[in-house]
């Protein structure tokens, strides 16, 4: 494995950050209502700087209360899911791994749908909280059943996760079959992943979990590189493999749980962004993790912007866009790179 130099990490991260800023600006200027490009940027910059803000009340609200917080939320979730996906792929040594493979998403879904059927509104903090709890309980259950002799074996963990996920899917189907037409619509949008369900206030509550989780995971990047060469090697090099796996599993799951609890199950991002980044930048996690995060953020913000404007004023669930654009792009990467370096 070719390792990267710190200089390269910083350079590429800086470039990707610029890309991300560009995508955020684009997301803020585009929408179903036409706000002139320059005015949108002015409103955004003036409000960040403080002082007088141009534009009408409606234009200000559209830029500052709708588009900007939504872009930030999409970016946060995109980064979180991509980083979590990269970690799961390394942890499970499985190219099919994504943030949802161990059932975290199903746990979150059971929580969200139960909250919905109990009458908690999606806008309030109740639903994300119950959903988050559902996800955390699932994480602990999978850990309990996926460990043998107190040790995490990737394959056992994978099996436990998949099985618990299937079991939870049965509960989801049961809930769906007993729900009313009106609840059904919200449930389906939630399962497809949709940012309009999230309240801007929820942004502040997921922020610490996602950001904190990403930082903790990034600190393990060096050790994640080592376990790619096999457990034996890692042990010889003095890496505490058990502890590493536990930390990675818990924090990657935490990031996923916080992300899905506010905007539902947005598919594909956590699978294709880490793969794509690996194909472009190589497998060194010190670069792969920040690159996946920044690309994932840009990708999800761009997808959400498309979801808002493609059929405007009608909005599409963002999950439709991520799957529609992510799939073909990934196939293209695979074809042009010929060989797929999974790890």
């Amino acid at each position: 494995m070719k390792l990267v130099t710190p200089k390269k990490v910083i350079l590429i991260s800086a470039l990707l950050t610029l890309l991300l800023l560009g995508v955020i600006l684009l997301a803020v200027t585009l929408g179903s209502v036409r706000v002139p490009f320059r005015l949108s940027i002015q409103i955004l910059i003036q409000s960040i700087m403080g002082g007088n803000v141009s534009g009408s009340d409606t234009e200000q609200a559209i830029i500052l209360s709708l588009r900007f917080p939504r872009a930030i939320l999409a970016g946060l979730v995109g980064a979180g899911l991509s980083i979590s996906g990269a970690v799961f792929q390394a942890l499970l040594r499985n190219p099919l791994a994504d943030p949802y493979i161990l059932g975290v998403s199903s746990g979150a879904a059971v929580g969200a749908i139960a909250a919905l059927l109990l009458g908690l509104s999606t806008a309030s903090l109740g639903l994300p909280l119950v959903s988050f709890l559902g996800a955390l309980i699932t994480v602990l259950l999978v850990l309990t059943f996926g460990r043998q002799d107190g040790k995490i074996h990737p394959n056992t963990l994978l099996l436990a996760g998949v099985i618990i996920g299937s079991f939870l899917s049965a509960i989801i189907m049961f809930f769906i079959s007993i729900s009313q037409r009106e609840e059904l619509r919200t449930i389906i949008f939630w399962l497809m992943g949709d940012f309009s369900l999230a309240n801007p206030q929820t942004l502040l509550t997921v922020f610490p979990y996602v950001l904190g989780g990403c930082v903790v995971v990034y600190l393990q990047a060096r050790y994640l590189n080592v376990i790619l060469f096999g457990e034996e090697n890692a042990l010889q090099l003095g890496v505490n493999v058990e502890r590493l796996r536990l930390i990675c599993y818990l924090f990657a799951s935490l990031i996923t749980a916080a992300s899905v609890s506010v905007c539902g199950l947005i598919g594909f991002v956590g699978l294709i962004v880490p793969h794509g980044s690996r194909l472009i930048f190589g497998p060194d996690h010190r670069l792969l993790i920040p690159a996946s995060g920044l690309i994932g953020a840009s990708f999800l913000i761009a997808s959400d912007t498309l979801a808002r404007i493609l059929l405007a004023p009608v909005e599409l669930p963002v999950g439709v866009i991520t799957a529609a654009f992510g799939g073909p792009f990934f196939i293209y990467l695979l074809r042009t790179r010929k060989t797929m370096k999974v790890l």
Binding site: S32, T58, P313
Partner: peptide, 24 residues
Amino acid sequence: PRWGMEEVLNRLPEVILVSSMNPK
């Protein structure tokens, strides 16, 4: 149709009717 919030802001409705879609 499913609308984005900015479209509602843009139309400036004078009356909003909320259908009691969900009894709860």
